[in-house]
Amino acid sequence: MSAMETVASPAISVQEQPGRNALSEPAMIRWLLTGVALLFLGFFLFLPLLAVFGQALEKGFSAYLAAIREPDCRAAIRLTLLVAAISVPLNLVFGVAAGWAVTKFRFPGKNLLVTLIDLPFSVSPIISGLIYVLVFGLQGWLGPWLYEHDIKIIFAVPGIILATIFVTFPFVARELIALMQAQGSDEEEAAMVLGANGFQIFWRVTFPNIRWGIIYGVILCNARAMGEFGAVSVVSGHIRGMTNTIPLHVEILYNEYNFAAAFAVASLLALLALATLAVKSLVEWKMRSPRPVRKPAQCAST
């Protein structure tokens, strides 16, 4: 044992010397690689972001505000918030249910379900929109029946919500399945042996372990729900003030050569993206920390 330690110690002292590492490259190569990466990021990510805000404020701050306060734009913002407010909670419920089902039970067709959950990620958004047109559109399967009963889905708000739900389907579910599979079901079994019922097991054992995963999935889901263009574009019908979401409104303004207004509205989405990134990093940091951040409570009542 002591012989092994004496053999091992020189290797450690080598590693501790600053700047001496078997994997490190000559200085020039290091600078070159770092420089290329930074240049690339700056050119493709940072510059466009600056351009959005630059263009948006080109005609001054009052023009910026006017573009956002304009009634059609306000309607687009309202619609986007409505769509997110409906599709995100639904996907949250679905995601938790799917995570629970996939990780805690054995059932036939489980692998198929897990694969299907990823479908919206692998299919083009245009197709995601088209499938609803094919099902609910006038020429579609259910179209004539819906027309007879005066129910509008395509080129109306329900269609936009359906398309958004489809596109944002995987975010919460994927996150939770990965997390819950890694955690296993030992703690749930322990709670069951101790006499907890199903609700208590979920609320007191499962949920605290997955809450950061839920938040992580929800913010990504929300960002996508508000920013989705392709699928929504197919089912929306682009009726100003009625079925236009923020991304669609940006497109309309842009096509009318109203660049300042287009970028002003686009900057809202850019801000949403930045806020999402900030929350995402915070959550990632919390998920990585080994212990709960909550202060230890003296046998806190529950």
Binding site: D186, E187, A190, A297, A300
Partner: peptide, 10 residues
């Protein structure tokens, strides 16, 4: 299988 988000006493 201890509950990782609870203290020993909890």
């Amino acid at each position: 299988a201890l509950f990782r988000h609870m203290t020993v006493i909890e």
